[in-house]
């Protein structure tokens, strides 16, 4: 049984089709990449998968039960969602931000237990930000802030992490750091990760499987070799590129834009 399953999921905003007939299955122990051009519906899909937005049609299942039949706090205890460009609106201390990860497990009158506190410290160590614990989050670099947000997510001890472009605008060091942390998390037999990525090279390198989205539909899915072909990339992204593999990594170099990309796909 899949950990997460989307069956013919669709989403409309003001009768505009954002997603249609999306079928996705995520198993434990894997890290699944969602890729596609801007506006393909990746972020919306992640919202449906997290239960933050309900699907307009179709359904999403978590461990066999309908996602929306679970209570919000049940979902929050199992599924963690890292929003795109996550940031704190107040200059909070890093430790306090990570503590927010324990919120789904507290009633409104309860405070952190000592067990919660040790989970928080562990999460910070896991994300390798223990040395930043007493800093103010707004004074950290973008890369460090992302790690803090990841620590917040580790603190909620989820089974599934849904991360929306966690490495956008990060330097290569932090990109690798964030991806390695997600990879390590997914290597557990109870865990899984779905990650939206724009960097195709990183996707090829870290993801076990990839879904390529185009205009609200799954265009291709499968292993990285199956999906990241020059042909797929040209049709969906509208760029000619050179894909090459060696023992260490896949490299995908965009070469040239293809004119009239949208005319090539459909005629509107």
């Amino acid at each position: 049984m899949s950990l997460l399953l989307a069956k013919n999921a669709g989403y409309d905003i003001n009768r505009v089709n954002i997603l249609k007939n999306v079928n996705i299955a995520v198993d434990t122990g894997e890290i699944v990449g969602l890729i596609g051009p801007n506006g393909a519906g990746k972020s919306t899909l992640l919202k449906l998968l997290s239960g933050v937005e309900p699907a307009s049609s179709g359904d999403v299942f978590f461990k066999g039960s309908r996602l929306l039949s679970l209570s919000a706090s049940q979902r929050a205890a199992k599924i963690a969602y890292l929003v795109q460009g996550a940031k704190a609106h107040w200059p909070l201390p890093v430790r306090d931000v990570v503590k927010l990860g324990r919120l789904p497990f507290q009633k409104w009158w309860q405070n952190l237990s000592s067990e919660d506190s040790s989970i928080v410290e562990n999460a910070m160590q896991k994300a390798e930000i223990a040395h930043l614990a007493d800093r103010t989050i707004t004074t950290l670099s973008g890369g460090e802030q992302t790690l803090v947000m990841l620590a917040r997510i580790f603190a909620s001890q989820p089974e599934l992490i849904l991360a929306d472009e966690p490495v956008a605008a990060l330097d290569p060091y932090h990109q690798l750091h964030v991806m390695e942390l997600l990879k390590t998390f997914s290597d557990d037999s109870k865990h899984a990760v779905v990650v939206v990525l724009h960097d195709l090279g990183l996707a090829a390198r870290f993801c076990d499987r990839i879904y390529l989205l185009n205009r609200g539909e799954v265009w291709a899915d499968g292993s990285t070799q199956e999906v990241l072909t020059e042909k797929n990339i040209q049709t969906v992204y509208g760029v000619q590129c050179a894909v090459s593999c060696d023992d260490n990594a896949v490299s995908i170099v965009p070469l040239k834009r293809v004119k009239n990309r949208h005319l090539a796909i459909d005629n509107d």
Binding site: K47, S50, G51, V52, S71, A72, S73, Q74, R75, A76, A77, I79, A80, Y81, V83, A86, K87, A88, H89, W90, L92, V97, L100, L103, P104, Q106, W108, M149, R152, S156
Partner: peptide
């Protein structure tokens, strides 16, 4: 005062607060 924890969660934005189980 009942909404205290909700306000804490909101400091990470609305979608995050939602994903943390707040209605």
């Amino acid at each position: 005062l009942y909404c205290g924890k909700f306000l804490n969660a909101l400091s990470l934005g609305e979608d995050t607060a939602k994903s943390m189980g707040f209605n």
